[in-house]
């Protein structure tokens, strides 16, 4: 008898699972839940940096490079020193730099959407690195459009709903 119970139990379980809450989220249309201490983009606090260069030497993928910072770049109150510049095309998000930083000038944030169209944009200068990441705006749901070809502008699109309303 126990054999029958053991055989039928997974089937009943699978059936009850059908009516449970869905675990996955519709990602581009729905915000993913990312914790604040996630190993995402690294934020740089220039006023805390002592320019020791430990982050550069500890970086396993050589993504961090210390560069000279000009005063005009937004660090007028900070003295002229070399500050870290991070190439996210090379970064492996190991957080060694965050762990080794003696003055806690580097911190990881939750931002994971770092895709760019150009590789050069992945290199974050100290000024860009020090910006607080903003919560991304969610993509709106795609609207249905229809193809519209005009002689002046070439191929374009027009909303489909208005057409429906006219009919």
């Amino acid at each position: 008898m126990s054999v029958v119970v053991r055989t039928l139990k997974p089937l009943c379980l699978a059936f009850t699972h059908m009516f449970r809450r869905v675990f996955t989220i519709k990602y581009p249309f729905q915000a993913p839940v990312i914790e604040d201490d996630y190993r995402g983009r690294i934020q740089f606090f220039p006023e805390r940096c002592i320019s020791c260069g430990i982050c550069e030497s500890v970086c396993p993928t050589a993504a961090i490079k210390l560069v000279e910072v000009k005063e005009l770049e937004g660090f007028s109150e900070v003295k002229k020193f070399k500050k870290p510049q991070l190439d996210f095309g090379r970064c492996c998000f190991c957080n060694f730099c965050v762990d080794y930083c003696p003055s806690e000038a580097l911190k990881s944030t939750w931002l994971v959407e770092l895709a760019e169209y150009e590789k050069s944009k992945l290199t974050y200068t100290p000024y860009k690195l020090s910006k607080q990441p903003e919560r991304p705006k969610l993509l709106p749901k795609p609207k249905l459009v229809k193809l519209e070809i005009s002689k002046v502008r070439g191929a374009g699109h027009a909303p489909l709903k208005k057409e429906r309303g006219k009919k």
């Binding site: 699978a14 699972h17 059908m18 009516f19 449970r20 809450r21 869905v22 675990f23 996955t24 519709k26």
Partner: peptide
């Protein structure tokens, strides 16, 4: 199958 695995 997706519903059984709690997916969409």
């Amino acid at each position: 199958l997706a519903r059984v695995m709690m997916r969409y």
